[in-house]
Amino acid sequence: MSNGNHSSIESFGKKPHHLMGLFLCLQKTISLLNITMDNTNLYTGSLVRLKSGGPVMTVINVNALTVECRWFDGATPHKAVFPKSALEQVNSF
């Protein structure tokens, strides 16, 4: 005997899979937010360096996940965008 509730029971059984996907998406978002919070003190004018090394660079723009930097190699100016997680703040000279 089917009273129409059968289909709603089947869809209810599928909801946990949908919620698991949502949970994984939220978990990834939180992970990205934790990465960006490591460098919350970065602002235009901050001095930074890649965690892997390299020249000291000046921050010229900060976004949610990236930082735009400028630096000089002798008299040659350079500009690039890096993930916040790849940078560390350095003390001023």
Rank of each mutant, 00 (worst) to 15 (best):
T58P: 01
H6W: 12
S8W: 14
R49E: 00
R49A: 04
K51H: 11
F93V: 01
G45D: 03
S11P: 06
S85M: 07
V90N: 02
S52V: 11
F93C: 03
L47T: 02
L32D: 05
A86F: 11
G54E: 00
M57C: 09
E88W: 02
A80I: 04
W71T: 02
V81T: 11
F12M: 13
N61Y: 05
P83L: 06
K28I: 01
N5D: 08
V67M: 02
M37D: 00
A75N: 13
A75V: 09
C25W: 11
D38T: 12
T76A: 10
S8K: 15
H6F: 14
S11V: 10
L22S: 07
G45A: 07
T66V: 03
L87A: 05
F93I: 01
K15S: 10
Y43Q: 14
G54H: 05
S52C: 14
R49N: 04
G13Y: 14
A75H: 13
V48L: 01
M37G: 04
P77T: 06
G45R: 12
H18P: 02
E88Y: 02
H18N: 10
Q27L: 14
C25A: 15
N3P: 08
V56C: 04
M57I: 02
S31T: 10
E68T: 10
P77K: 10
R70G: 01
D38H: 15
N63G: 03
L26Y: 10
I9V: 09
Y43A: 14
L47Y: 09
A80E: 06
S2G: 15
K15P: 00
M57W: 01
K51P: 10
T66D: 04
G13N: 15
N3G: 14
T44I: 07
K15C: 09
H18R: 15
I35S: 11
M20R: 15
L33Y: 04
M1H: 14
G4F: 13
H6A: 12
G54Y: 04
V59S: 03
